[in-house]
């Protein structure tokens, strides 16, 4: 059985007819072609599939479409068009945060979610803020530094 589901995706009203149990992750990737949201575990552990739902970070591999009705979803493709998104992405590039890149869109989402609630995070705050996002390449140090850099450069953005 399919349902009509309306929601806001990266600032635009969208609608889709689909199984309400279909994972938001599959809808973003397969139906909307938003491939920046990655799947690396499919069970909520890694954070690669993170997006913002009503400004809060969630992992889309666990979210059924039926619970997205009327919500605002922001993916990396939306975030990268905003001043905040640009600031974080530039800081990641300058700070050497990116290696293989598979975890990185999710990290950028986590950074936005953190800075939105805590514009001047300590190292500990940052580490806690990205602890749901696994990265196997970087050892996290340069990601932490890059988020600090974004916070500094962001001056007033958050």
């Amino acid at each position: 059985m399919t349902r009509d589901i309306q929601f806001v995706l990266n600032g635009k009203d969208v609608a889709i007819t689909c199984d309400p149990l279909k994972r938001l992750l599959d809808v973003l990737r397969d139906d909307f072609g938003l491939f920046g949201t990655k799947e690396a575990c499919g069970e909520g552990e890694c954070g690669a599939c993170s997006v913002l739902k009503d400004s809060k970070i969630i992992t889309t591999c666990m979210v059924p479409m039926g619970s997205v009705q009327g919500c605002e979803i922001m993916t990396i493709e939306g975030l990268r068009e905003t001043a905040r998104g640009k600031c974080i992405i530039e800081a990641f590039a300058d700070g050497g945060a990116v290696q293989c890149g598979f975890c990185i869109p999710g990290m950028v989402i986590a950074a936005e979610s953190l800075l939105a609630s805590n514009p001047e995070p300590s190292e500990e705050d940052i580490r806690l803020g990205i602890s749901g996002n696994l990265c196997r390449c970087t050892g996290y140090d340069l990601i932490v530094e890059s988020i600090r850099l974004a916070a500094k450069r962001g001056n007033g953005l958050w």
Binding site: L34, F35, G36, T37, K38, T75, I76, E77, R80, I88, I89, F92, A93, G96, A97, V98, C100, G101, F102, I104, P105, V108
Partner: peptide, 14 residues
């Protein structure tokens, strides 16, 4: 890094 921006912005294709 040459690949930093495409990866961080989610544009890179795997």
């Amino acid at each position: 890094r040459t690949d930093a921006l495409t990866k961080a912005s989610g544009a890179e294709k795997y």
